[in-house]
C-alpha cells in the first residue's frame, strides 16, 4: 500500500452515505459512512454479497449517482475536484476524461463497429471540427488499444459478431481510450465463463501493470479479487475491518 504522505490518492471518499426512501416511509441506508482511498496505479477489488452496496458505491464514485451525504475527491496531479462542488457539466467532463467504465453487460453500441465503439468517448468530448482534424490520430490510438486487448484486425466488425469475452475486451479498450486516471469495473467477468474470465483477469492485470491507471473492480470472483493490490470486503454498506493488502500480489 502506498505511503499517503508521499503520494496523494486518485480518489478518496469520506463518510459516504447513500440512502433510498422506502415505500413505508423509512430509509434504506445502502452505504453507511464509508471511507475509501485509491492511490495512483493501485488496483483495488471490492468483494461482497449481492445487495451490500458494491454497485451503488461504484455509481457514486463514477459520478453516475450522488451520495446522500459525504464527499468524494478526485485528484489528477495538482488538480482536485470535490464531488460537492461539481456542476452537471463538470461531472460529465470527469466521467469522460477522468473515469473509464467497464460494465458487466459490456454495453457496446450495436449501431457502431468495434473501432467506432472504442472511439466513442472522443466523439463525445470533442467538437466536430477538432474530431475530424484528429481523426487519424484517434483511429490509430483506437487500433493500438484494440491490438493491446488482442483484437487486431477486428476493427470493422460489428459488436454482434463478437463473443462475450471479445466484447468485454472492446469495452475495456473503450474505457481506456481517454487514458483515464481511474478505471471502474462493475463485475467485468460476471457474465463470462471461467476460461474467458481468466483471460479478462489476465488482461486487466497486464493493463494495470503497463498503464499507470488505478483500477477499482467490483466482483464476486475470488480469482480476480486475489489479483488486486488490495481487497476490500463489503458488508452492509461498510468495509469489513479485516480488509487488507492481498498477500499474493503485494
Amino acid at each position: 500500500m502506498s505511503d499517503l504522505s508521499t503520494s496523494l490518492p486518485v480518489i478518496s471518499a469520506r463518510k459516504l452515505v447513500k440512502s433510498f426512501p422506502m415505500a413505508n416511509g423509512s430509509e434504506l441506508k445502502v452505504l453507511q459512512e464509508l471511507d475509501l482511498q485509491i492511490e495512483e496505479s493501485e488496483m483495488v477489488a471490492i468483494v461482497g454479497m449481492s445487495g451490500v452496496g458494491k454497485s451503488t458505491l461504484l455509481h457514486c464514485l463514477g459520478l453516475l449517482d450522488t451520495p446522500t451525504t459525504g464527499e468524494i475527491t478526485y485528484r489528477d496531479g495538482d488538480r482536485t475536484w470535490r464531488s460537492t462542488d461539481l456542476s452537471e457539466d463538470d461531472r460529465c467532463q470527469l466521467r469522460n476524461h477522468f473515469i473509464g467504465f467497464v460494465f458487466q453487460f459490456f454495453h457496446l453500441l450495436p449501431d457502431l463497429n468495434v473501432l467506432e465503439n472504442v472511439m466513442l468517448p472522443t466523439v463525445i468530448s470533442q467538437e466536430t471540427g477538432e474530431w475530424n482534424r484528429n481523426r487519424s490520430k484517434l483511429e490509430s490510438r483506437g487500433e493500438s488499444l484494440l491490438e493491446r486487448v488482442g483484437l487486431k484486425g477486428r476493427e470493422r466488425q460489428s459488436p454482434g459478431t463478437l463473443s462475450g469475452g471479445e466484447r468485454q475486451r472492446v469495452a475495456i479498450a473503450r474505457a481506456l481510450m481517454m487514458s483515464p486516471k481511474l478505471l471502474l469495473c462493475d463485475e467485468p467477468t460476471g457474465n463470462l465463463d471461467s476460461r474467458t474470465s481468466e483471460s479478462i483477469h489476465q488482461l486487466l492485470r497486464e493493463l494495470h501493470q503497463d498503464l499507470s491507471t488505478s483500477i477499482l473492480v467490483v466482483t464476486h470472483d475470488p480469482d480476480l479479487a486475489s489479483r488486486a493490490d488490495r481487497r476490500l470486503q463489503m458488508i452492509d454498506g461498510r468495509f469489513q475491518n479485516d480488509s487488507a493488502d492481498n498477500p499474493e500480489t503485494s
Partner: peptide
C-alpha cells in the same frame, strides 16, 4: 435506452 445510458456514462450531458 441502454445506448443513451452508455452515452451518459461516457460523459454525455443530459441536454446532449
Amino acid at each position: 435506452e441502454r445506448d443513451l445510458g452508455v452515452l451518459r456514462a461516457l460523459g454525455a450531458t443530459r441536454s446532449g
